[in-house]
Computed example of a mutant assay.
Amino acid sequence: MSREMICRAWNKKTNSYVKEGDLVLDLRSGNICAGDLSHSESTIDVTNSVVLEHPIGREDEEGDRIFENDVLQVVLDHYPLGYYQEVEYVGVVKYDLDLCSYYLDLIKPPVIGGETIPDEIDGIKITREDSEDFESSFYFGEGILSADMKVLGNIHDNPELTRKGSDK
């Protein structure tokens, strides 16, 4: 049984993504080479010139594959005290080696929208979550659907998206 190995490669020298077929992984050496491996004299080692970005195994609402280093928006329904709210997370897709899991390294605090929760219900004071209290990262769970996610760009082609506090 075989499985297609997919990744995309950012060329640090040309500041562009490498087109399909331009790179080869040399399994003997572990190096990334450009050229035809059947003619070793025509290949060059580009291991230090490229950044390989792996897909996370998910697609966004448009059916686009989500890769490491993509800037991703995730909007989730949230029902504190039965009131409908949406929480929007925007961050860069990263991989946590310790937890073996993809996550968003948040660019800005989550944005909470939807129904306003009253300050008091039946005489009980309500303490609200403040978006500043959220963690600086967001881990993908099983319940997150493609419809909840949208690729806004990536850190290479759209560096302006990664500025802390920037709006989409």
Rank of each mutant, 00 (worst) to 15 (best):
G35Y: 00
N69K: 13
I44S: 12
T127Y: 09
D148Q: 07
L104S: 08
F140E: 08
S40G: 07
K19M: 04
G123P: 15
E41W: 06
L72N: 01
D36K: 00
D64P: 03
Y83Q: 05
I124D: 11
S2Q: 11
E129T: 14
V51Y: 07
K108V: 07
W10G: 00
H54W: 12
V90S: 13
G153A: 08
I112V: 15
F67T: 00
P110T: 07
R3W: 04
L97H: 12
D60N: 09
V50A: 00
D70K: 11
S38P: 03
V75I: 14
E86C: 10
S42C: 05
Y17W: 13
L152G: 09
I66F: 05
V90M: 15
C33G: 00
V51C: 09
E142Y: 12
E132T: 14
E59P: 01
V51I: 15
Y79G: 04
G35M: 02
E59I: 01
F140V: 06
V18K: 02
M5R: 01
K164E: 10
V92L: 08
E135I: 06
K94E: 12
I124S: 11
S131A: 08
D105A: 07
Q73W: 03
K12L: 12
G143T: 13
I117T: 11
K12Y: 03
D148H: 15
R128C: 03
H54Q: 08
I44L: 07
E62N: 15
A9L: 02
L161F: 05
L81M: 14
E20K: 01
S38V: 08
S42Q: 10
L37F: 02
G63K: 12
T162C: 15
E120F: 06
T47L: 00
Q85C: 08
R58K: 15
L161M: 04
F67K: 00
D96P: 13
T127H: 10
E20A: 10
D98H: 10
V92C: 04
D96R: 12
D148W: 06
D133E: 15
P159V: 10
L76A: 09
V151Y: 06
L76K: 14
A9G: 04
G141L: 05
N69S: 13
D77K: 14
V92N: 04
S29K: 02
K12C: 03
G21Y: 01
G114M: 07
V74W: 07
L25S: 03
V92S: 03
G165P: 03
D119Y: 09
L52N: 03
I44K: 14
R65D: 02
F138S: 11
N158R: 11
V50R: 00
Y103G: 03
R163Y: 05
V92M: 06
G113C: 10
S49W: 01
